[in-house]
Design a protein around this nucleic acid. Structure first.
Length: 355
DNA sequence: AAATCGGGGCC
DNA sequence: GGCCCAGATTT
């Protein structure tokens, strides 16, 4: 039944595909960068990051040898930071084992860190014209709708079935175009929220959900668990023209990025002053800052904050705490967007305007 | 199988 | 406020 959609999709894609930076090339390194960046991330958000990343690290060897802070700085604001760490691990393996060239083999691609079913399929089909599917959220939605599939698209069993079904109809001539056509359709026509644009859909005749008037019932997807709430007190500790930063642990949320020193829970002025002294610093002045909220996928941070001026003669006890000039922070230290509401009080914009 | 891991745009 | 995004990895 899926074979009917192949030709219409290829024709539609050829006429309607968007012009995107990573579509100017079939170089595997470029396709790889774009596919990793596009994981759980919208096309519009990726564009400027992709161009900057390619300019900074044009070759596999450049990525393999890049210092971690610089790597994270290039990823700052994109989120899911393990993506870029895994990319570097993979790059090192590719340089050592594959002469710097991503293998033209679906199974071998999957052995590299950060490359799973979807990404291996995308690289193999787009860069190497290997006829394998690339099943992402767009594809699952489109297939669930045209076939009125009641299975939860988040389940691995559903993904495996869709992948197997698509495998049977992959066109050998240009599998990459077919995969991208399916995704492009999901992104611009068979859209998730609101109503899909069925009037311009090239495969509307093959769509069961549309025929049945049940397009709004698909895809079926389980509800996400409620977010956990965390309260934090953010400290903007300034020493003349410098600001205190703290390096986060190498595992867990926002691993390896720099943050403003902060405390669990909401703290009073006096508690903060005590804590700052415990850091080995001498507070001169303290001022409270407005509350702010930052929402992650599975956690919500409710934050309050203080600006604290300390003596310039001070030295923090904690090795992971350091005082950095604002300009240097902007240039060299990756700080997550979660802190942007407070960063502006020390004239940091966390790269919002100039990627 | 479920939890973890960012950030933003749209309804 | 909820949903979703060219998902992968860990638990």
């Amino acid at each position: 039944m899926l074979e009917k959609i192949v030709e219409p999709l290829l024709m539609w894609y050829d006429k309607n595909k968007r012009i995107l930076p990573w579509r100017e090339t079939f170089d595997a390194y470029d396709i790889w960068i774009s596919e990793i960046m596009l994981q759980q991330t919208r096309v519009e958000a990726v564009k400027p990051y992709f161009l900057r990343f390619k300019t900074a690290l044009p070759k596999m060897e450049d990525l393999a040898s890049c210092p971690e802070d610089r790597l994270l700085k290039l990823w700052e604001g994109l989120g899911y930071y393990n993506r870029v760490r895994n990319m570097q691990k993979a790059a090192i393996q590719v340089v050592e084992k594959y002469n710097g060239k991503l293998p033209a083999d679906y199974e071998l691609l999957k052995t590299l860190p950060g490359i799973g079913n979807y990404t291996a399929g995308a690289i193999a089909s787009i860069a190497y014209k290997i006829p394998v599917p690339a099943v992402d959220g767009n594809v699952l939605r489109v297939i669930a709708r045209i076939s009125e599939n009641d299975d939860d698209i988040m389940k691995q069993s559903m993904k495996n079935r869709v992948q197997a079904d698509l495998m049977k109809v992959m066109p050998k001539s240009d599998p990459g175009a077919f995969n991208q056509a399916l995704m492009e359709l999901g992104a611009v026509v068979c859209i998730p929220n609101g109503s899909p644009h069925c009037m311009v859909c090239p495969i509307a005749e093959s769509c069961k959900a549309r025929k049945g008037g049940r397009i709004d019932k698909y895809p079926v997807k389980g509800k996400a668990k409620a977010r956990r709430l965390e309260k934090h007190t953010i400290l903007l500790i300034q020493d003349g023209s410098r600001i205190a930063l703290h390096k986060r642990p190498s595992r867990g949320l926002l691993a390896g990025l720099y943050e403003f020193p902060n405390l669990d829970g909401y703290k009073s002025r006096d508690e903060v002053l005590e804590q700052v002294k415990d850091y080995g610093l001498s507070p001169l002045r303290i001022q409270s800052l407005p509350k702010a909220k930052h929402i992650f996928s599975h956690v919500e941070w409710d934050m309050m904050g203080y600006a604290v001026q300390v003596s310039e003669l001070d030295h923090p006890k904690d090795e992971k705490m350091l005082f950095v000039e604002t300009e240097q922070t902007e240039k060299n230290y990756p700080v997550p967007r979660a802190y942007s509401a407070y960063a502006r009080y020390v004239n940091l914009n966390l790269g919002r305007d100039k990627i």
